[in-house]
Design a protein around this nucleic acid. Structure first.
Lengths: 371, 371
DNA sequence: TCAGAGCGGGGAAACGCTTTCCAGAATCTG
DNA sequence: CAGATTCTGGAAAGCGTTTCCCCGCTCTGA
């Protein structure tokens, strides 16, 4: 503890400071600072003495003070839409691992699709002096971060964002993965393929739907409006959307969902209406969250790797924060998607005997789902 | 921007500081500070002028500087074991909401059951000067936080922790919920009830298993060792454990799981071995994560409310941090658990015709699962 | 032998804020 | 109207770092 003479009552705990180390090692605080920051001009012998003192008193540099003087807090903000959607924890996890490895702390916040929440979230992050913010809400809130934009803050968006020097964008190629999914279904013989979209105020949801429509058109398959229903990327939304599809005069033979949670909701709705997946209807998800492979049946889905997203986000942020970063000039970071075939897709009902269907599906899954 | 005369190149951005406000409002910085901190001695007229200036220049108090002088960072640490286990995001969400409402920021970290990770996690939190830490890893790592304990740091543990003045414990009553679950199964006619535990190095996992054994004993039902298998609170672990149970000469008629992820794994394993839930075997989970109700079939489970846990954790932390907190002296915070009946439990196979079983189960679910 | 270069280390300023101390003004009391 | 009391705002002292500047030492070459 730093001061033996006076124990101030108004502050919480007298943490051990650089001065304690300096006193113990009989050097100036400047030397301690240089030692800690591994500045080579410090005499090795002296440095050893300082390190010993640091160890003895249990000194940990105070990050706040460091941030105050350096102007860099070494904190990154990460804004997601909904932490309870399993996709995001996976993303947060990856992001955090990478950020910590680079010496950054992460401040996470979820907007829950509320502008007011986003507003305070950003204020909080500004006050905490984060060095940059990744807005991984997939295509909403861009207007809300005007504050950050004005301050010429390093920012990372997904899909789209204002074209400004300090703003970097992760461009997800929804087209490729969704094309693979549609072709997979078409190859199995499906023609009545429905699509459950995400909330259409999300740009990424629109992009996914458009990719679906385009892929269908490429194959010359009709995609009637009644087969495209809007969900909201939650299980509840998936259930509601699927119920609208099962209420149709004739059920589509396959349904592609804008994310895995929607697909899980769809599976649930089909279970409740005693339809069997994939015999009665094939279901495809999007995201490939960890849970997907544990659904009943394991979900065929389009993989958008969290790890890729997190890696790109951290790299893009650092490119904006750190001077002389090799990729400082890069503004777009491509993210690819690809189909992972599991057991929720099969030949449409009636086209082949069930055993053959299962065998074929299993074979397809075995062949294609290996990474 | 603060200084027009020199734009320093080495620091990132010249944030607007208290001095800019003072200049604009033509008062001293002390007056601005008092205004911001709502100290009543400031002339209302003057205060209004100051607020106007604050608004005009877009001033946000620098939290780092504040923390430096006040000794309180207004940050809370939250340590969980695994952010990708859906239980924890729900907990994090609740915790964060409550903390932010009280003016705290949250630093989240997951240990992934690695002591090394926990070590660095704690060091990071200490360096960031958090005001207190909630260790919600459910009964592991207590020894690892020795550092924090030594510094007389406000700490919150779940289930158990060293008995020290600055340490508060959330005591979860596993017994009650598990007793309800066992009684529910027994009432349906089950006698061969298995239990898939969590990793037994987790105290909470041991507590849950012991509660199961005790409840069985209370009803005079045998709980043979072969019916108690160890999982690890993941889906993968649940699958493996369930496979060991299905390999037994005779399958138990019901299985109680130490958490919902295990139960989901169990459902998956049963699906793969073509057993039907609940007709062939009943499955009960623990936690009541959001996903539970969307499983196929919706999972009967013991609810341990995240909201209760988060509320208690934040309150307990504040009790340790803030002087004169009304509950400063309280060291234990009880958390209750209770059964939520859904559709993964039914009469054991053979005891009644399937239709009756389903109807009864549905009725039971309808009656008991309403909150 | 000594001037100048090189280098390691110490003193002190600065970062943005809070808090304390103090002086001056305003109000009240006898 | 003098003296006491209250109130308000300004100045200054930190909080724990980093960093700049300068001092004193040693080394080299003339």
């Amino acid at each position: 503890m730093s001061d033996s003479k006076s124990q101030p009552q108004n502050r919480r705990r007298a943490a051990v400071s650089i001065r304690d180390v300096a006193r113990r090692a009989r050097v100036s605080i400047a030397t301690v600072s240089r030692t800690v920051n591994r500045i080579s001009s410090v005499d090795p012998e002296l440095a050893k003495r300082v390190w010993k003192a640091i160890d003895e008193v249990g000194y940990l540099p105070n990050t706040q003070a460091r941030a105050l003087v350096s102007g860099r807090s070494h904190m990154l903000g990460l804004i997601v839409s909904e932490i309870t959607n399993p996709f995001f924890p996976e993303l947060v996890q990856e992001f955090e691992n990478l950020a910590v490895a680079e010496g950054y702390e992460v401040l996470v916040g979820s907007t829950n699709y509320s502008p007011a929440r986003t507003e305070t979230l950003i204020r909080r992050m500004l006050q905490r002096n984060v060095d940059g913010v990744a807005v991984m809400t997939f295509g909403i809130e861009e207007d809300l971060v005007q504050k950050l934009v004005e301050r010429e803050f390093p920012l990372v968006f997904v899909d789209a964002g204002p074209r400004l020097p300090n703003i970097r964008v992760l461009k997800v190629d929804y087209g490729e993965g969704i094309r693979q999914a549609v072709q997979h279904l078409a190859a199995l013989g499906h023609r009545a393929i429905a699509f459950i979209s995400g909330p259409l105020l999300l740009r990424s949801a629109v992009a996914r739907r458009d990719a679906f429509v385009k892929s269908m058109a490429e194959l010359g398959i009709a995609a009637p409006a009644k087969h495209i229903v809007e969900g909201d990327h939650t299980m509840e939304g998936g259930i509601a959307a699927m119920e609208r599809l099962t209420a149709l005069a004739e059920l589509p033979t396959a349904v592609l969902c804008s994310n895995d949670m929607t697909a899980i909701g769809a599976l649930h709705a089909l279970y409740k209406t005693t339809h069997t997946v994939p015999q009665d209807i094939s279901v495809v998800g999007f995201d490939d969250i960890h849970l997907a492979q544990f659904m009943l049946p394991p979900l065929t889905t389009v993989q958008m790797s969290c790890k890729d997203l997190a890696t790109a986000a951290v790299e893009a942020l650092r490119a904006g924060i750190e001077r002389d970063h090799p990729k400082a000039a890069q503004t777009e970071w491509p993210i690819s998607t690809r189909l992972v075939v599991r057991q929720s897709t099969a030949f449409p009902r009636g086209s082949l005997p069930a055993q053959v269907v299962n065998a074929a599906a299993a074979k397809a899954a075995g062949k294609q789902s290996r990474k």
